[in-house]
Design a protein around this nucleic acid. Structure first.
Lengths: 180, 180
DNA sequence: TCGTTAAAGCAACGATATTTGCTTTAGTTA
DNA sequence: TAACTAAAGCAAATATCGTTGCTTTAACGA
């Protein structure tokens, strides 16, 4: 009656990785809304059933893949200067979504978002909390403000207006958030 | 060689309207990512081909329908007080996306967003420009700031964190944007 | 290394979706 | 109100998708 032991290494890992590469290629080639599971399976050299049983459908697969594209374990900027840290963090995310592939994968996964408690951007919130925490209680920003004023504008642009993700967007957003 | 004359009234209008209602029902019943074109066609009492030829696929259809759900011709708040106008405008949009149906339709259409110049939120930008314009040159806010700090947070939450769209979100966002 | 069993592969089926050429209907303009 | 033709309907063929029961492989823990 205990939870089944997950198998994450070896063949399973290889399959997952092949799927990820296949998805990347196909999203680039045809756009996220046109990738189908049989297509991914063929490209990855994997059986379609494996994908169906793991995710169920394409948006769920994309949503899950999008979640891990910006490495959740990467180290966060920590210079001690809140403004600098925020700018670096925001800049990293802007850079990420400036790559059309990343923006497209995000878009392809959104139909699944908001229906479960787990959204593909939950990692950003974790990071925001960490940065706030490090800045100490004296800090004037909350994680919620970071989400609303930094992440939301970046993601909004990535999804709907990708051509407006310019290089100094991060700095502009941070400047608006922090008192001069 | 001139552009073909579009037919927007009569039967075409009836078909479009039947499709819209069918989409609403089906999104409510099964979620946006599960509605298929044949399904919509049947429910609307319309031939599937009509839908295929008009939009090509489901995300494109949803994206288009999402664009017109908040009436672009509704009158904007215009009390003369910028803060009041902004709050009313933002509140209207929050209310809109608090309805799960509207949020779901938005999500269902996003895979198509960002690929063409026309996104399903362009009307919000038009409205922002109008409000800024009315406020006169003395105004301290730009349309871009309104998009980044009002629309983006609302839409971000609608898509990824719909349960956080609370009633006073609009007021909070406006307060952050406008100097006290 | 061995036993257990999660996860991948296979195959065949039933269901749907999508395309295409053509016909019919009816919106628009003159 | 008549001509022109955009847009809807129809039908049939094609192509895909997604499911299911079962077999095989190999990851993990003891």
């Amino acid at each position: 009656m205990s939870a089944p032991v997950r198998r994450t290494g070896g063949r399973s890992a290889a399959v997952l990785s092949a799927i990820r590469y296949a998805v990347e290629d196909l999203v680039r080639e045809r756009g996220a809304e046109k990738v189908t599971i049989p297509m991914v399976a063929e490209r990855a050299g994997v059986n379609p059933t494996s994908i169906y049983r793991r995710w169920g459908d394409a948006p769920a697969m994309l949503n899950d893949i999008a979640t891990y594209r910006l490495d959740p374990d990467r180290s966060l900027p920590q210079t001690g200067d809140l403004r600098a840290d925020l700018t670096a963090w925001a800049g990293e995310i802007v850079e990420h979504y400036r790559k059309p592939l990343n923006a497209a994968i995000l878009r392809g996964g959104t139909p699944m978002a908001g229906e479960r408690e787990t959204d593909c951007l939950r990692n950003r919130r974790t990071e925001a909390l960490q940065i706030v925490e490090r800045a100490g209680t004296a800090s004037q920003v909350t994680a919620d403000e970071m989400i609303d004023q930094i992440i939301a504008p970046i993601v909004y642009r990535a999804v709907f207006l990708p051509w407006t993700l310019d290089e100094d967007l991060a700095a502009r957003l941070v400047d608006r958030l922090l008192p001069a």
